[in-house]
Design a protein around this nucleic acid. Structure first.
Lengths: 237, 237
DNA sequence: TTTTTTTGTTAGGTAAGCTTAACTTTATTA
DNA sequence: TAATAAAGTTAAGCTTACCTAACAAAAAAA
């Protein structure tokens, strides 16, 4: 049996790990800060999680999820992101409203329920924030999100979300011809005025650094690309 | 703030009250039994609920929900029944599967969520078990469920559910011309062989006591009818 | 290298929700 | 009405998940 609290610890360990790319292992204080609890509390729980073989660490050392622990964490993350998608797609919640409710819904214990929700949504790949949704079988290839300005010249990427929900910005996004799931190729970058030349659907336009920083993308084929500096997460221990 | 445990206590007090018609007030042991906890535990919690003014009782006396407490309990019951309907209607859960999951979902704190689910379902009146769903405004006129054999001669009622889900029985139900929401009028009862003569959609048939005991109905206009022995629940204290 | 800061651990304590065991009050029935 | 049974209460104790305060280890800076 996994308690709701335990699920939250495991999920947080996974998320902290995902937020930092190659550098592995999470610290006690870091975890405590993330969960808004005191380090002493986190330390107590970590002992318990270690005993249950969901995490592994040495005294004063970094904390790692075990294979079992990672499996649980990925399942919770899957539920969270599917519920967010459900709220957004089916119940017209806004981006900023979905998280709080999904934090509760992610702990509902019913495999059938979440699989049915998955089915109802058409087995979506990404949630409303552009985050990848783990598959039922635990498959979870992480493409760390980047902003458009981080993409190298010649590289292609896929737009997944935006970092600015103002009407002004969103209207500009539409004007440039951009939208969720569009493939964007970075053609060139002007060092003089920092403009980025991009190609979307065969149409070429130039955007500013400021604009590009508000466009979230994931790398295309970043596993094979040499120029891609993306960070990968090994989900198969 | 209402904890999940507190919500369950209040909901159970309401349900126990509903299950017994006129006889008001619930006992400590009765409540404990219903919640599968020990009377001592229930007693502790009841003190807390009294302090929060959600229940009222005197030492060694029967327990009553206050107006505030009843409001919370009705909200939880509303959520429970709407979630059951959602699972049944939208995710093709079966009758026996919905309850367990709804027990968890009923505690999700989001007014917007449950109102949107209500809307998605077309503001249903009854859940898959034929139980009435309280309205958003707290309106909750209880028609205690009866079985068809309890209906007096000359009285009309509405079929809401069945107590036997076997294929044999259900096929028989269809053959007799019965279905959910049908209005049934009891024409006569034969004392010799206990057959009940009913009228459904202008069609007259006779059914056995055994059959009638498996048909759940609610009284029509039972508030005004003198012959109706139905029990009423005052929801406006 | 020594000092200081950061990070992690231990010990003792609290509140919620549960338990058992012993007891009191109320209700039943002989 | 007195004995017995049922219902309700109290007290002491457990577990989970949190806290503060004091301390130890590791890392960073002087």
């Amino acid at each position: 049996m996994v308690s709701i609290t335990e699920e939250n610890y495991l999920k947080s360990l996974l998320q902290l790990r995902l937020n930092k790319g190659k550098e592995e292992g999470v610290g006690t204080n870091e975890l405590a800060e993330y969960l808004s609890i005191k380090p002493a509390t986190a330390n107590d729980m970590l002992k318990k999680l270690k005993e249950k073989q969901w995490v592994d660490y040495e005294k004063y050392g970094k904390i790692f999820l075990t294979k079992k622990g990672k499996k649980i964490a990925i399942e919770v993350l899957r539920k969270h992101r599917l519920w967010e998608t459900f709220l957004y797609e089916k119940l017209s919640f806004t981006w900023d409203e979905v998280h709080e409710v999904a934090e509760q819904l992610e702990h509902i214990q019913s495999i059938k329920l979440i699989d049915k929700i998955d089915e109802m949504l058409g087995f979506p790949e990404f949630d409303p924030h552009g985050e990848i949704i783990p598959k039922k079988n635990g498959e979870f290839k992480i493409h760390f999100k980047k902003t458009l300005d981080e993409i190298a010249i010649g590289e292609s990427c896929k737009m997944v979300s935006v970092n600015d929900n103002s009407t002004t910005f969103l209207q500009y996004v539409v004007k440039v011809g951009l939208g969720i799931n569009n493939t964007i190729k970075v053609l060139s970058k002007q060092s003089y005025d920092d403009l980025i030349e991009i190609e979307v659907n065969g149409h070429i336009s130039s955007v500013s650094q400021r604009f590009a920083k508000n466009i979230f993308v994931i790398c295309k084929n970043c596993e094979t690309s040499k120029t891609c500096s993306n960070k990968h997460f090994e989900h198969t221990d």
